[in-house]
């Protein structure tokens, strides 16, 4: 009997390990593919007799040279980071007070208003970019990164407000009452108690907004023409695809460099994000 159970446990452990390993490979494969393609010679990549997962010719830095010296990739990275940081700041400044107000101060209307705000997130940019381009031109912001700083919060703020509302609702109002009796104003109680407890939600909003900015394409493409004002998501496909010729090595290098920092940050805070998304999900 004992042997039977031991075998069963080995099998269970093996299955467990197998599932985890499969998911790890699934998640890591895109990064491996981007990385190996970045350093592969184009002749090696295109030769169908070669095993695509291994190097058959010596690695090369040529694709990275093209990316950094023949395009304005460095500039695009800086542009993306600048827009991302500004949008994150604007989103926090607007969504934190709005989410708190909806969670606490408006009573029965709070929830319906919250849903209403969330619905605006569902209107796709492919519909909005035409009217918004008129607004951008009207403000004289065309061909400027400021047009993106202005427009991106239109989708980051509603979602973030809704997400933060769920977080703030989950904090018992007794805690704020206690802090107000213990010597703080409502604002003080918010800063000392509510903010530290909902740090997971705030981090989620930061990462979420930043990622959305990095991958946004429609607005960035339509509002901006000068190459020096491009973001990564527009610059890379525009300059590394000539007709039907794909500069795969440089394309993959561009994607890899842009995605690694986010992936690292994400993994660093992964536990908190899980808390973040589940709290939002079940209110």
């Amino acid at each position: 009997m004992a042997t039977l159970y031991r075998v069963k446990r080995w099998l269970a452990d093996g299955a467990h390990f197998g599932i985890v390993a499969a998911f790890t490979i699934f998640a890591a494969f895109p990064f491996y593919w981007m990385l190996i393609t970045t350093f592969k010679r184009t002749t090696d990549l295109m030769n169908r007799t070669h095993n695509p997962f291994l190097f058959h010719e010596p690695p090369t830095l040529e694709h990275l040279r093209v990316l950094f010296y023949d395009t304005l990739y460095g500039r695009w990275l800086a542009n993306t980071a600048l827009v991302g940081v500004l949008v994150v700041v604007i989103t926090l400044v607007l969504a934190v007070p709005a989410g708190y107000a909806l969670a606490r101060l408006t009573g029965r209307w709070g929830e319906q208003l919250g849903i209403g705000i969330f619905l605006t997130y569902l209107v796709p940019p492919t519909l909005l970019f035409i009217p918004l381009s008129r607004v951008v031109v009207g403000l004289g912001l065309q061909d400027s990164l400021w047009s993106l700083v202005l427009v991106y919060p239109s989708f980051t703020v509603p979602f973030s407000t809704w997400l933060l509302m769920g977080f703030f609702k989950a904090i018992p109002s007794d805690l704020e009452d206690a802090a107000m009796i213990d010597g703080y104003s409502r604002l003080g109680a918010f800063a000392k108690i509510v903010m530290p407890i909902s740090i997971a939600g705030i981090l989620t909003v930061v990462i979420f907004s930043f990622t959305l900015v990095m991958q946004e394409f429609v607005y960035a493409l339509t509002f901006i023409s000068p190459v020096s004002q491009y973001t990564v998501s527009v610059g890379v496909p525009t300059f590394l695809v000539h007709g039907d010729v794909y500069f795969w090595g440089s394309l993959m290098a561009g994607c890899f460099i842009a995605s690694v920092p986010i992936a690292v940050v994400y993994n660093f805070f992964v536990d908190r994000f899980i808390a973040g998304f589940t709290v939002g999900a079940v209110k």
Binding site: P172, D177, A178, A179, I181, D182, Y184, S185, I197
Partner: peptide, 30 residues
């Protein structure tokens, strides 16, 4: 007067302890 100016202390049914602070910091908070 706001609650903080009334020289009162309150114990809540839920105790309302601040979950992100140690016991020491909870007591030191006021």
């Amino acid at each position: 007067l706001p609650p903080r100016a009334r020289k009162i202390a309150m114990v809540f049914q839920s105790y309302a302890l601040y979950p992100h602070m140690t016991v020491f910091k909870n007591i030191a908070f006021p």
